[in-house]
């Protein structure tokens, strides 16, 4: 076997963690998006009870820290007989937590569509559902894109916390190797660079996507 010169000899091990980090980001953000839509719409519901439940959910998840939520799911849930894998817990907690923040984006964007647009829909005799689906949502989604992009980057960086529940992501591999090799400088510099190399192209891609979606409209 050909020896890889340092510090790159560390990469194969770190690489295994990257896969976990990417998976967490993908599934976590998918769940977060779904949760954001449900809670965001819930907070706009006609029904008081639904509004209340959605608000309680949002405040609970925003008012407690992600790390403790992870610990809670990891250490406490098994006492209730609920067993998840570390990956499932990571995705679940990330999705539920970032979804709570995302719900505010959903709610704000929907409210930001001017009332006059709704009135134009009524004047064309559209049903409330058609007005939501064909007039409000498309405009709201466009407004949601930039803040959701930011949230996605935040989530990617937030995945580092799952290393605390022994999920072998990029950060976890880094800390593990530090213990065995003591090459802290190299390890954590590489880890930083890898996170950046994941986040930055994502930022650029999101920006491109936004521009594509906004084409022709002002």
């Amino acid at each position: 076997m050909i020896a890889i010169p340092p510090p790159f000899d560390l990469l194969p091990t770190l690489w295994r963690g990257v896969g976990v980090t990417v998976q967490l980001t993908l599934f976590g953000s998918a769940l977060a998006f779904g949760v954001a839509l449900i809670i965001g719409f819930g907070r706009l519901s006609r029904f008081r009870l639904i509004r209340l439940l959605a608000t309680v959910y949002m405040e609970l998840f925003r008012g407690t820290t992600l790390l403790v939520q992870l610990f809670w799911a990891y250490f406490v849930l098994p006492h209730f007989g609920v067993e998840f894998t570390e990956m499932q817990i990571g995705v679940l907690v990330l999705g539920l937590n970032y979804g709570a923040y995302g719900s505010e984006i959903v709610r704000g964007s929907i409210l930001a569509v001017p009332n006059t647009q709704i009135e134009a829909g009524i004047a064309l005799n559209m049903s409330p559902w058609q007005i939501m689906r064909r007039i409000i949502l498309p405009q709201a989604l466009l407004m949601m894109l930039p803040p959701f992009g930011n949230l996605l980057i935040e989530l990617l960086k937030g995945t580092a916390l799952v290393s605390m529940i022994t999920l072998a992501d990029l950060t976890f591999q880094g800390t593990l190797m530090r213990v065995s090799t003591l090459r802290s400088l190299e390890i954590f510099s590489l880890v930083l660079i890898i996170y950046f190399l994941l986040a930055y192209p994502l930022t650029l891609a999101l920006r491109l996507f936004e521009r594509k979606m906004a084409e022709g409209r002002s």
């Binding site: 006059t116 647009q117 134009a120 004047a123 007039i135 466009l142 409209r217």
Partner: peptide, 11 residues
Amino acid sequence: MVFQQFNLFPH
């Protein structure tokens, strides 16, 4: 109805 501010669908 036609409105003062047109209210076309911008998207």
